[in-house]
Design a protein around this nucleic acid. Structure first.
Lengths: 205, 205
DNA sequence: GTCTATATTCAGATAGAC
DNA sequence: GTCTATCTGAATATAGAC
């Protein structure tokens, strides 16, 4: 690895770390430079602007989350229950975003804080990620394992939302692990908190 | 109402609206002033700083969300099912944050974007709000209506998280209403997506 | 490649006239 | 109460030496 590549990687890592913990605004070019012992102006030798640097970090984060979920699904048995696929994907997402590295965390942490250009740049990536989940839910409903009386798009967004918001309260130091959070989300949205009989009123929108 | 009070109210309203749609950083004193046809310096006659103004907006937002949920719960029958209380609270939250005014939306939208002082200032308010939900879940578990094998704190945060994240994708113009989103969250986390028999593995943390 | 120095812009905030 | 004018600080970014 060339020295330039090494430095470039250090900049990306420091940016991911700062975005993941401090968010977009508090992540300044100066603070990034300080973290790796450089002057802020030197960053611009490697990246043309703050937003190009941030954009690259977010691209990596999206790719890693997608890879984590895809890999987990690929390891499933051929004849798995669609619920099991959902479970595996939920836990993989939780581990990637909560327990994983700074890159996927940076994505979730800065969601809704980015300037319009960056938001637009990552819209397609988010759509692609959403499609993984759309397929999982469709499979479940069409195989008869999951209820078909709910709006699937809303269901998908609720699952992803519960997982994404966990970044706001999850504390890696506590006794609840990232996988535990995923298991809880699965238990709740698939099996439900309720005990015993309950009606499932038709909710169609 | 005195003129000073009227202007003050206009400033608060404009700030709530901007926070709810654009977030904390993009809400500048200058942009607030422009919205109501003032000079930015004039804001400082009514509020000593941007953060004091923002803090007041967030206080109002918290109060409104708490009131909405409390009122909805107060209207329940005395002998209601604990699940019904959870349902009513979830829908009230959804309507307050998604369909309601700018103040509760501002709270959720800026969560995780605020400077440390403001974050700290509202920590107690968030704790109080969380306690409403803690009680609802405790009631459900202790009465035997809800499963006791999950971490209740995690369950509470997952429910609130699913609702809060909805602000990122909910579009008031679409055919899914705020109450619909609440109904979906309730159906999922209480009744579950699954159809028919399923085991509920013990998950204790 | 990284440095020092600096240009530019824009935010929050203050002073003082009206 | 609201204005105009201005200060201060911080952030992105550029110029040019080394």
């Amino acid at each position: 690895m060339k020295k330039s590549d090494r430095t470039r990687q250090d900049i990306l890592d420091a940016t991911a770390s700062s975005l993941a913990t401090a968010g977009y605004t508090a992540t300044t070019v100066k603070s990034i430079a300080e973290t790796i012992g450089m002057q802020d102006a030197s960053i611009y030798y490697h990246f043309s602007s703050k937003d190009e640097l941030v954009g690259e970090v977010l691209d990596i984060g999206t790719a890693r989350a997608v890879t984590a979920v895809d890999q987990a699904l690929a390891e499933l048995q051929d004849d798995h229950d669609p619920r099991e696929a959902l479970r595996v994907a939920i836990i993989a997402h939780a581990e990637a975003v909560l327990g994983g590295g700074d890159y996927p965390r940076a994505n979730v942490r800065t969601f809704g804080q980015l300037p319009p250009d960056l938001t637009h740049r990552h819209r397609q990536g988010h759509r692609n990620y959403g499609q993984i989940w759309t397929r999982l839910i469709d499979d479940g409903v069409e195989s008869g394992a999951l209820r078909g009386d709910l709006n699937r798009s809303v269901a998908r967004l609720i699952i992803i939302g519960a997982l994404c918001w966990a970044i706001e309260w999850f504390d890696a130091g506590e006794e609840v692990s990232a996988a535990d959070v995923g298991e809880h989300v699965f238990q709740m949205v698939v099996n439900g908190l309720s005990i015993g009989e309950h009606e499932s009123p038709a909710v169609s929108v």
